[in-house]
Amino acid sequence: MSVEPEVPIVQVEEVRENPVLYKIISSDNHVFTISEHAVKLSKTLWDLITNLGLTAENALDNPIPVENVNGKNMETIVQFCERHKYDEEEPEYTNYIREFVLPEWDRQLLSIDNEELFQLILATNYLDIQKLMDYCCRVIGDMAKDKTPEELRIIYGIPTDAEDDALERSASDSPGPSG
């Protein structure tokens, strides 16, 4: 029985991969490595990298602290950015309703409970990742399908007019900072 010579397997993605990697530290001190193409999906992170003058030589020695995003959300965000780093650029935003189908991989990624999704959206908003924001919004928007206003009020935590009025009254009755 002959043994086939070991041939290195080179994936297309690796060939295309830019060797520049960056390190990100989440608010709870988890460290993530992310490629240059992927990190560019976050306008906030890329601006930071540019402003800090990080280069291929010093990038891994200078981890970027991100105080507003915890490790759980950062893990999702890094996965998302690596998955979509070679996507074609989105067409210009129009005034029309944004109609698109959420890809199955992303639907799976975003199948998390509502509190986690809430935190992920805040993180996405902070890091300014347009595509992930669109996808998260699609998940939240789809929750409105086939629901009555009463059901929507529960799903989206919308107070009734009476509750809004009561909140405003209690806010105006409460003493100011000087007591």
Partner: peptide, 12 residues
């Protein structure tokens, strides 16, 4: 579980 729409920033 509820996802509180009024708590999101305006842009979100």
């Amino acid at each position: 579980m509820v996802i509180k729409l009024p708590r999101f920033p305006y842009l979100v």
